[in-house]
């Protein structure tokens, strides 16, 4: 077997194993949370008999290990269970929410990833001079300001003063793509500002590290322009560390946007999770946790695989 295929398959198998482990952790975690769904549904005045009935009805009296495997079996069949509070199928409700979150993350990524890499290349080209310092300064400032503050500042100046875009990022199926993009413009800007600095700085550091290599001198002595040297000779050798940071930030765009979603009242996964945590709706929390874990593991696995593929020694063995 080609060694690279073997490595990739190894990563995939490891990813699956990790996901199972994560599911067990999530299940155990929600088990040891204080509080009781039956109690919170029926309230403090419920009789012990009513509580016991409801528990039996919700399947809460079955031993935890068996419940875990029932749940895991359901998940493998695409059945994430039913919400305890509103009796809706979780997979259905969450599907729509996840779609919205991915929509937002997708556009934020489309803008922030190329921009971060381009700014990183630019910072390397003008290392130590004012463009480098300006880029570093601005991106660092934007990552240091809490995202809700950036959100409100943008709402005030752009939406309220300049009357561009909308303050509330509500989207629904009836809207055209243009309308949707108009609605999510502000949250996309906020997310871009939040993830930009990290990726840009890693790009800069990774490429600067490669710039010390002897083959960069070779390229310079061929008479190539500085930018060509950086883009053609340095960048391909810096892909692995850059991809890792890019993927971490993409994962953040999916699982870490709770605050931004709340600020812009965006119907995404974050709000969904927060709502149901407050209601002690354990199956929903479990399902959300599992989806978040899957996103994280998948993206990091992709980063690993891209790193492997970007290494010519692994791609073309002797």
């Amino acid at each position: 077997m080609h060694p690279i295929l073997k490595l990739v398959l190894q990563r995939l198998a490891l990813g699956c194993l990790l996901l199972v482990a994560a599911s067990a952790l999530i299940f155990a975690g929600t088990m040891i949370l204080p509080g009781d769904v039956a109690q919170s549904i029926l309230g403090q005045s419920a009789t012990p008999q009513a509580l016991a009935n409801l528990r039996a009805e919700l399947g809460l009296d079955v031993p935890p290990v068996q419940r875990y495997f029932d749940w895991l079996g359901g998940v493998l069949h695409g059945d994430l269970g039913t919400s305890l509070t509103n009796r809706l199928d979780i997979a259905d409700t969450m599907g729509k929410r996840l779609g919205n979150t991915l929509f937002l993350a997708f556009w934020a990524a489309i803008i922030s990833v190329p921009l971060a890499i381009f700014l990183g290349l630019l910072a390397v080209r003008y290392e130590g001079r004012w463009p480098d310092k300006l880029i570093s300064g601005v991106t660092l400032a934007s990552i240091s300001i809490p995202e809700f503050l950036i959100g409100y500042v943008l709402i005030y100046f752009i939406a309220v003063k300049l009357r561009m875009f909308t303050t509330v990022a509500m989207i629904n199926d009836g809207m055209s793509l243009g309308e949707k993009l108009n609605a999510i413009a502000l949250p996309v800007i906020v997310l871009t500002l939040v993830v930009l600095a990290h990726m840009m700085r890693m790009t800069r550091a990774a490429i600067l590290n490669v710039m010390q290599s002897a083959y960069i001198e070779t390229a310079e002595l061929k008479g190539l322009s500085s930018f060509k040297v950086i883009a053609r000779h340095a960048f391909p050798n810096a892909i692995a560390p850059i991809v890792n940071v890019v993927m971490l930030n993409l994962a953040y765009l999916v699982v870490g946007v709770v605050v931004v979603e709340v600020v812009f009242v965006y119907p995404g996964m974050g709000q969904y999770l927060v709502d149901h945590v407050a209601k002690r709706d354990v199956p929903v929390v479990q399902a959300c946790g599992l989806v978040f874990a899957a996103v994280y593991i998948c993206l990091n696995m992709i980063a690993d695989i891209v790193s492997i593929l970007s290494n010519p020694r692994l791609r073309h063995p002797k």
Binding site: A214, P236, P312
Partner: peptide, 11 residues
């Protein structure tokens, strides 16, 4: 260069 092994871009 002295060390061609280092002077060629590995990628």
């Amino acid at each position: 260069a002295q060390s061609a092994a280092a002077a060629f871009n590995p990628a």
